[in-house]
Structure formats: structure tokens, C-alpha cells
């Protein structure tokens, strides 16, 4: 069953990765790319966290569990490069 739609990461992928590498929730995300696709994790973040909590036993922390990095929407390089006017 797919959990992360953007990267097509399944529940089994997350479980297998944890059992193979005996790693932290963060490392499972880095290895599987769950929650790191085009949408930035908006759709699956709570779902990925719930799976990781069950698999790794790590509770959701006070910080956002997946550290949010800008840009929070996909943007073209021309926009990032300041091509747009200073409005």
C-alpha cells in the first residue's frame, strides 16, 4: 500500500528499510524518500509520521517532524533567481 503518493513509497518499503538498516525515523525518510516528493510532504506527512511512530517507536516531537525547508512550493529557477520584480 502506497503511503507517499509522490514518490510511491509503500508501507512495506518503510518497514523493510527500518528492519534492514535498524535506523532512525529521519534515516528511513532519507533512504525511502517518503514525504520528500513534489508536494513537500503536505499530503502524507501525518501518515508517514504515524507509520514511523509505529515502526521506530519515535513519538512526534515538538519540532515539525520533517524539518520544513524553503521553498515550500515548487518554484522555477527564474523565480528563485529574482527574475520576478520586487513587487
Amino acid at each position: 500500500m502506497i503511503i507517499c503518493r509522490c514518490e510511491e513509497v509503500t508501507l512495506e518499503d518503510i518497514r523493510d528499510t527500518f528492519h534492514t538498516y535498524k535506523c532512525s525515523a529521519r534515516e528511513v525518510k532519507l533512504r525511502t524518500r517518503a514525504g520528500m516528493g513534489y508536494c513537500g510532504g503536505r499530503t502524507c506527512r501525518p501518515a508517514v509520521d504515524a507509520v514511523l511512530e509505529e515502526v521506530t517507536g519515535e513519538k512526534p516531537g515538538d519540532d515539525l517532524p520533517l524539518k520544513v525547508q524553503p521553498p515550500v512550493r515548487p518554484v522555477s529557477l527564474s523565480v528563485l533567481g529574482g527574475d520576478g520584480d520586487h513587487a
Partner: peptide
Amino acid sequence: TDAGVFDAEQLLIATGAAESAAPIPGWT
């Protein structure tokens, strides 16, 4: 933003909510 950079002395973020997923097989 995708329409340029806006400068503000004060900023209000009122972006609301998003829906949590309840995945079941076939949901894509």
C-alpha cells in the same frame, strides 16, 4: 512568491488547514 518578493513590516500567516490522508490500497 511566484509573483515577486513582497516586503512587510508585519506579517499574518492565515494558511488554514490541510487534509490528513487515510491511505488504503488503491488510493492513487
